[in-house]
Design a protein around this nucleic acid. Structure first.
Lengths: 157, 157
DNA sequence: TTGAATTAGTTCGTACAACAATTATTTTTA
DNA sequence: TAAAAATAATTGTTGTACGAACTAATTCAA
């Protein structure tokens, strides 16, 4: 089978716009972690995991705190917390000092889930960053943060 | 205004997981391009732009070709093409050699849209990659591609 | 201290992402 | 050639992203 179909190669090998490369890699990474979690039967998504992980570092955050920590939108956090509460991994505690606000608490099940998922995540990370040493990873993060800061400045000029 | 609210800093400054940094930067980049397109009144999304741009490089691709070139799923491409056709920027031409397949063609309006949007994209790119020289960008892309390849290999061990 | 601005969270609408299942057409192969 | 396999596109569902509009509670200000 020499020719497969229409225009084979000039498309699939399209290198080198850095934005394209960045998008593509981030997407693949997310997809890979997602598939890893699904294959292990964890019943949570990677975005739900990120929220769990954030609460594990600091329990009792408000939804807005979580939004800021994860760089997600408040409506997105509302829905993720809905799902986590449905699964019994977190619960909403009304803040006694401010009745608009919830304190999101990990339940026992939530802590169990973290114990179950953490080693899976660690293995996946190992695979993702293979062949890069710490120095390279630091360099990579430095450059990514430069881009991030370039796009975070207030002036749009 | 010294104290803002609950737990101010330990959260918002959370560095150093490289996956987190990558996610965050890619998301900000997409968001930035999206907002730039919206602010300029272009009436298209960044994902729609990526498809237009792909067709600009090679007109008449099938939807599967576009999916492969953009690393999006076929169903996603179906829906993006739906929107582009609604806007009159592309049209579906049935392939005479294979009646399952469409050839997606840019319309005159599609070419006009590309002429309108391209300079906007170029300015945005300039801002994104400021303070990084070509050597650094090459390095960055090399490392991103290493990660990409790490996660694309068939063996899951 | 009432009235105006803020703030926390939710709901709504549109768009994208991934996966599964389905239809229509084409190609294999037996 | 008829049945089976493969392919292109679509539809459906769930989850995430983001803006806008909304409610309820709190804080600011005149």
């Amino acid at each position: 089978m020499p020719e497969t179909q229409t225009q084979p190669n000039s498309i699939t090998e399209r290198p080198d716009m850095p934005g394209f490369t960045l998008e593509r890699t981030a997407k693949r990474m997310k997809q890979f972690f997602q598939q890893t979690l699904a294959a292990a039967g964890t019943e949570i998504t990677i975005d739900q995991w990120v929220v769990l992980q954030t609460l594990n570092q600091q329990n009792g955050l408000s939804q807005l705190d979580i939004a800021r920590a994860t760089f997600k939108d408040p409506p997105t956090i509302t829905r993720i917390i809905d799902l986590l509460c449905q699964k019994g991994l977190t619960e909403r505690i009304t803040d006694p000092d401010d009745r608009r606000r919830f304190r999101i608490q990990l339940t026992d099940g939530g802590y169990q889930k973290i114990d179950e998922v953490l080693p899976i995540i660690h293995r996946a990370r190992g695979k993702a960053w293979a062949k890069l040493d710490n120095g390279q990873i630091d360099q990579l993060m430095g450059m990514l943060n430069t881009v991030f800061n370039n796009l975070s400045s207030e002036d749009t000029k």
